[in-house]
Computed example of a mutant assay.
Amino acid sequence: MLNPKRGRLEDETGAERVLRAKSFRVLELLLARRGELLAKDELLRNAWPDVIVSDDALSQCISDIRRALGSRGAALLRTVPRRSYVLEEEALASVLPRRAAARHGAATASVAAVFAVITGLGCWRCLPNRMSFP
């Protein structure tokens, strides 16, 4: 799971997978445009603003990301020779599984809470000896 607030990548158990700050930034950029070819120049410009770096810096970040993604890293982060990289669409499920589940769980809990409040108000209105408050 990518945890932008803590600036880290976590596996399904919650253990941290080590990523340097620039590698984390490159992963964020690739995730934002997953499934699309993101040009090297754009990656370099957004990960290293106002700094001139070589393609080797980006290559090192890509290696870090693949290592952090584990055995499927090479398949999830595909190299397009002489152009750039593509983070495959399925990467969303493998990199962010718990975040999506947490959002779904939070939405379900919110709907249940609203339903409980409405039901409670309806029951209260039906009581014969309601107390009135000034």
Rank of each mutant, 00 (worst) to 15 (best):
T79L: 15
G7W: 01
K5R: 09
N46G: 07
E36N: 13
G105C: 02
A93S: 14
E42N: 04
G70Y: 03
L77C: 05
P4N: 10
A102G: 00
F115E: 03
L27D: 04
K40I: 14
L76P: 02
G7T: 09
L38C: 01
G70K: 07
I65K: 00
L29P: 00
N129F: 08
A75P: 00
R82M: 12
A68N: 11
I118S: 02
A47K: 03
S84H: 00
I62S: 01
L37H: 15
N129C: 07
G14P: 05
C126R: 15
S59A: 01
L44A: 04
T119R: 13
A109H: 14
S54M: 07
D64G: 05
G70A: 09
N46T: 06
L58K: 02
A109P: 08
P97A: 11
L38G: 04
K40H: 13
L19P: 01
T108H: 13
P49G: 06
E42D: 07
Y85N: 03
V117I: 09
T108D: 06
V53I: 11
S23K: 13
E10H: 08
K22A: 15
A91Q: 03
V51D: 02
R72W: 07
G105A: 02
A112V: 06
P49C: 06
A75V: 06
R98W: 11
A47C: 13
K22V: 05
R103N: 09
S71C: 05
R25Y: 03
V18R: 10
T119E: 12
P128V: 15
S71E: 09
A107T: 03
A116R: 09
A15Y: 15
W48L: 02
L121Q: 03
A74P: 05
D50W: 07
A74R: 06
A113D: 03
R98M: 12
D56K: 13
W124S: 10
A102M: 01
G73A: 15
A57E: 04
D56S: 11
V86K: 03
D56P: 04
F133N: 14
E16A: 12
V114F: 07
L77G: 00
M1P: 05
L9V: 02
K22T: 11
A47S: 05
R72T: 11
L77Y: 01
